[in-house]
Amino acid sequence: MNPEMVALLAAVLFVLGAVGVLIRRNALVIFMCVELMLNSANLLLVSFAYAHGSLDGQVAAFFVMVVAAAEVVVGLSIIVSVYRSRRTTSVDAPDLLKL
């Protein structure tokens, strides 16, 4: 199997995740899209490992996975606390980035 195809699949997944981040409004779904992008990166790392015959790519993917787990924990708690104070999970509602 040509790893190039795997990399192209990773690219497609990454772009879909990125577009999802931009067009979805539910913070949770956006977060899932971010996870999708991370996964596509992982896929790319694994395909590199396969293509080059080196396990370093897999190690990196492993670390990404662990970091993603930590990120999800913190991110979800942020979403929960925002939801508590604002009663919404839409990212359009808190436009507090503008004073």
Binding site: M1, P3, V6, L9, E35, N39, N42, L43, V46, S47, A49, Y50, Q58, A61, F62, M65, V66, A68, A69
Partner: peptide, 21 residues
């Protein structure tokens, strides 16, 4: 993706993907 990992000789990651993710 886990299945693809497995196909790419990444058994541990495939399992981690299923279990952790």
């Amino acid at each position: 993706l886990a299945a693809i990992y497995a196909a790419l000789d990444a058994a541990l990651l495939a399992m981690a993907q299923v279990i952790v993710y």
